[in-house]
Amino acid sequence: MTHQTAGWIRRRGVRLVGILSGVLPAVGLIATYAAGGFVIDPVKEITIRTGRLAITFLLLSLACTPAAVITRVGRLVQARAPLGLWALAFAGAHALAFVGWDYRFDLALLGLDIAYQRYVLVGAGAFLLLALLGVTSIPSVRSGMGRWWRRVQRTVYLAAGLAVWHVLWVKKNPLEAWLYPVILIALLGLRLPPVRRAIARLRRARSVEESKETV
C-alpha cells in the first residue's frame, strides 16, 4: 500500500464504510425475497425487516459521536451522516411497503385503519423528520441554512424517540421492543455532561498509568 492510499483511507475510510454499510443488508433483503424466502407473508416480512434496518441504522448513526468521544478516534463521526441516510432509505422502503404494498395505495382502506393505528402516526412522524434531515444534508441546502442547520439536525433525537415509541407500540415481542429504547437511552446518557466528564477523568487516569509504565 502506498503512503498516499494509506492517508486517503485514514481521511476517508470511515465515511466510505458508512456509505457502503447499508448495501449488504439491502442486497440481502432483496436477494432473500427474490429467492422466495418470504413465501407465506412477504408483506409482513419486508415491512418488519426494512423497519428493523431503519431503526438499527438510526441508532448506529447516533452511536458515532459517543464512540468517537470514548475511543478518541474523532474521524468516527464521518460515518454519522451516511448511516443516517441509510436509516432514511430503509424507513422510506418501510413506509412504501406499508402504504403501497400492504394497502396498495387504497386510501379508502387506509382511512378505515389509520385513525386507530396510533403506531403508524408515530412512525410517520419519525419518517418525516428523517426526511427533513435528509433534505437538509444536501450541501447546497445546508450552506443556505447557516446556524439553523445545527438546530434542525438536533431533531434526530426526536426522530429516534418517535421510532422507538413506534416499535414499542407495534411489537409483539417485548424483549426486542425494549431493546431499542434501552440502547437509545444509553446513547443519550453518554452525552450528558457529568457522564462525559467521568469518561474524560477515566481516560486521564489511564493515560497517567500508561505513562508511568512506559517510564
Binding site: 407465506i40 407473508d41 412477504p42 408483506v43 409482513k44 400492504d102 394497502y103 396498495r104 387504497d106 382502506l109 378505515l112 385503519d113 389509520i114 385513525a115 386507530y116 393505528q117 396510533r118 403506531y119 407500540w169 407495534v170
Partner: peptide, 23 residues
Amino acid sequence: PEVPHPRWSQATERLIGENVRRE
C-alpha cells in the same frame, strides 16, 4: 371491525396466501 384494539385498528385484515388486504 368497528371496535379497535387499544393499539391498532381492526377494520381491515390481510388474507394470508393471497396478500390482499380487505375489510
